[in-house]
């Protein structure tokens, strides 16, 4: 197959994680992987983001595929069931809104900036080296720490299922993938699967 420019977007995904290690404010760029898929689904009515541009999916495909870091087993049936996929989406969003709430509290001055990255919604990793204080409000940094936590957590989960099952197993329960598919279903009520 002909290689396209967007087949190398995995580099951007990798770079994102690296940059956030050195300066947390880069985490804001992650909003792109949030809004672009939603806009493509809402306006175009397709999953063009997953199907072409998503660097994260490509990264898992590369590590699990070309580098062989995957057992290449079938994913358990319950993980592709609707209740798990929708349930994970809801859980993910609940955690996301909690993160937004914490950001709000810092913006409102009710809470101090916490320079930690929270992995898997539980483990607090020190990350203070990535923030040096800027002219910006601490709330801006709090959002960056929170968003980076979301991105790192999903990467770790994705790597785990990549090793256990097929390279891109993350795509089965990825909240963005599930959400864009739901939007497409809503936009094409007559296309039945």
């Amino acid at each position: 197959m002909k290689k396209r420019w967007y087949d190398d977007l995995w580099i951007a995904s990798l770079l994102y994680l690296v940059l956030g290690f050195f300066n947390i404010l880069f985490a804001w760029l992650g909003l792109l992987c949030f809004f672009i898929p939603l806009l493509i689904a809402a306006i175009g009515g397709n999953k063009g983001y997953c199907n072409r541009y998503c660097g994260r999916g490509q990264l898992f495909g590369l590590l699990g595929g070309r580098f062989g870091l995957s057992r290449r087993r079938d994913i358990p049936r319950w993980m592709k069931s609707k209740w798990f996929r929708y349930g994970f989406l809801i859980f993910f969003f609940a955690m996301f809104f909690q993160m937004l709430w914490n950001t709000y509290l810092v913006f409102a001055g009710a809470q101090d900036l916490k320079q930690v990255v929270t992995l898997l919604w539980t483990f607090r990793l020190p990350w203070h080296w990535a923030y040096h204080g800027t002219l910006l409000h601490p709330g801006v940094a709090q959002f960056a720490f929170g968003f980076y936590s979301v991105m790192l957590t999903s990467t770790v989960l994705g790597l785990l299922t990549m090793v256990l099952f097929k390279p891109r197993s993350w795509c089965v329960y990825c909240p963005m993938g599930t959400m864009t598919q739901l939007i497409c279903k809503a936009k094409h009520p007559n296309t039945r699967s």
């Binding site: 197959m1 689904a41 397709n46 999953k47 495909g61 795509c171 598919q181």
Partner: peptide, 27 residues
């Protein structure tokens, strides 16, 4: 098995014949 397809498009990328497509972002 379209009811459990997640429309990720991984299959489209590997098909040497270009025989696959994602229908309306659903399957």
């Amino acid at each position: 098995e379209t009811s459990v397809c997640v429309a990720c498009g991984c299959c489209v990328k590997v098909c040497p014949m270009g025989a696959l497509s994602i229908s309306d972002g659903i399957y």
